[in-house]
Design a protein around this nucleic acid. Structure first.
Lengths: 247, 247
DNA sequence: AATTGAAGACTAGTATGGAAGTTTTTCCTT
DNA sequence: AAGGAAAAACTTCCATACTAGTCTTCAATT
């Protein structure tokens, strides 16, 4: 983090800790705070003009999501992107969302599917306007609404958490090429299969869509090596090496 | 909670908050603290001889897991068992674990599968000895080791969290009938399919296993209605009804 | 008797101070 | 100049005090 940054939390009645979580999560996912960067309760508390306690609680929540790592008495840092973690998140997401696609094809009612379609229409406009940020937000909404159409709105909460790991990679990819057209086509294919009630086709279309990241992941990791966890020698927790001294 | 209860946290070097989470989670899942019961930061802090802060942080983590609900300025309570929440958790768990079973069948190496089998052997002994608690612990370990054999050890973390919702139901079921034999047979079927490398059969066996709870769920909900969330009229958050007063 | 309202007892949220521990720096010794 | 020990500057963790909001209770009023 560079300068004094104040989030747009003016008249909100939400607890401070909650707002901090939202702000920090967004900053991390959009790479405004870089992977590996060190955070500090005191520092952030000063920055936002609050006490250390809400900042601490925000750290705890972000640690649960796997976005930061809190090392007692040592410090808190944004975890670097881990290829293994991204692949694991992708695996979990694929498992859940393929099941969602199946369910949506089986019992998605017309009303809910209309919501999904409306989402894709808006995404098409965003793509035409070149508004990548809005397109990405609508991408997320597409998946969320599809889960709702499948009668499993809560499953999105789990997917969302896994998605955070993948989003940073995606954000790096965005600056490189612009695969909006590809994403759009895949979304349309998923919806078409769901609309026709073909559950197997819907699952397959979703699987194809969620496999996409695997082709770009190694390229991106090679391009920004300092943002990624060192591969191969996964030393585990590099800070829990206890010294022999003590007794 | 009834009396003054001190957990077995004597010489541990773990942070207090973490130990509190483990103790509270176990107490909730085993129904020692009943669904709907009210918790209090101050009360628990006094009980354990610690300050409110670690208790508060434990509440935050449990709220993330969906085991308690924190209502600002109103209180914290153990969430009642929700049929919908259990079904959602089951859906997510099925999606992930079926994918795990497939992967395990495809690329599970002999070493990892031997671990799984050893787990089932131990479970067989526990069943013969009538040690239900140990059997349940080994049940959990079976699934965990299968995830490891599939090369997706981290996916177990997600399943574990969903499982918490289901475990309370299972705990009620245990006191009723003893379905250990059924569980054992299903576990053996899963392992057999995985061992033979038949990914589709492994997935199917896992799906059957994880569908089991659906037959007992309505019966259990009817038997202990006060432990379950009121069905049908899901009033949303019964405590966020804002009064009109204010301006 | 029923209703209303104010006071008191709760609740969680936040701020602040200090304790335990780690890492870095600095200065002394060799 | 190089190595090592002490000290200073961090870090998160925990305890305590206080604030703000909610709920209950009980008394006064209608």
């Amino acid at each position: 983090m560079d300068l004094v940054t104040l989030p747009e939390m003016a008249t909100s009645a939400e607890p401070i800790a909650r707002r901090l979580v939202d702000w920090l999560r967004h900053a991390i996912v959009t790479m405004r705070i870089r992977p590996g960067e060190k955070l500090s309760e005191q520092d952030l508390a000063r920055r936002f003009g609050v006490s250390r306690q809400p900042v601490r609680e925000a750290f705890i929540k972000l640690a649960e999501s796997g976005l930061v790592r809190v090392l007692p008495q040592r410090g808190t840092m944004v975890v670097k992107i881990s290829i293994e973690a991204v692949e694991d998140a992708r695996f979990i997401r694929e498992a859940i969302e393929c099941a969602v696609a199946r369910e949506a094809a089986r019992r998605g009612d017309a009303r809910a599917l209309a919501d999904v379609r409306a989402c894709l229409d808006a995404a098409g406009e965003a793509m035409a306007a070149g508004d990548a940020e809005r397109f990405f937000a609508l991408d997320e909404e597409f998946h969320q609404r599809l889960a709702a159409a499948a009668g499993r709105p809560n499953s999105w909460r789990v997917v969302e958490e896994q998605k955070a790991q993948m989003d940073r990679v995606r954000y790096l990819d965005m600056s490189d090429s612009i695969p909006m057209k590809t994403v759009m086509a895949q979304h349309l294919a998923i919806l078409a299969a769901v609309d026709s009630g073909d559950d197997r086709a819907a699952e397959t279309a979703m699987r194809v869509h969620l496999t996409e990241i695997l082709v770009s992941l190694p390229k991106i990791a090679a391009r920004w090596p300092d943002l990624f966890e060192a591969q191969g020698g996964d030393v585990g927790d590099p800070g829990i090496v206890r010294r022999a001294a003590g007794a």
